[in-house]
Amino acid sequence: MSLILKDVRKGFHQGDAEIQVLKGLNVTIEPGQVVSVVGQSGSGKSTLLSILAGLERADRGEILVDNINLTPMSEQQMTLFRAQNIAVVFQQYHLIAHLTALENVMLALEILKMENPRERAEEALRELGLGHRLTHFPSQLSGGECQRVAIARALVVKPKILLADEPSGNLDTHTGDKVMDVFFDIVRKHKITTLLVTHSEALAKKCERTLRLEEGQLREA
């Protein structure tokens, strides 16, 4: 599924001043492409991610997913569209603490009313090497395991686009590498269009394409 940004702009009000974070982004990402977005802190990476995830609206410009324009969608349409097409993985995993690994993954499926949630969730976790950790709570899992559960949760709904925000940012290099290896394996296997926000050049290099967010503009690195 392709992802096209046309002159996307976003600003914030801070007191009386208006700060333009995104000053007209233009980019086209091909279906199945794994793209990284790098940039310094405060460069607007997370804002971009928010807008792409449909959690925030751009001030101007258009976002086309598979040639469907997200901009004029209502909140409700947006929610539905996002749920069926876009998944997000966070740096802080954001697992629900009182649900087991399996339940965390199942929840995503159940919200979308998908068939056989248990089987699919188990399968997804097994694919990420967590078959033996199904009934563990996040507090009983290591950071790497947690992030793998988070990834499983994101992928189990078979999104067309995956947005990842520093997925290895909270992990040590070794664990991070291992998690990311699995991550890349799976997105490639399922041909998921992926946008990986990171400040790690090493990680960026593992992607097919790297974009740099600088001064409110998105450029090919």
Binding site: T79, L80, A83, L107, A108, I111, V157
Partner: peptide, 8 residues
Amino acid sequence: LKILGASG
């Protein structure tokens, strides 16, 4: 939950 696709 919202991010996972739950409606309001």
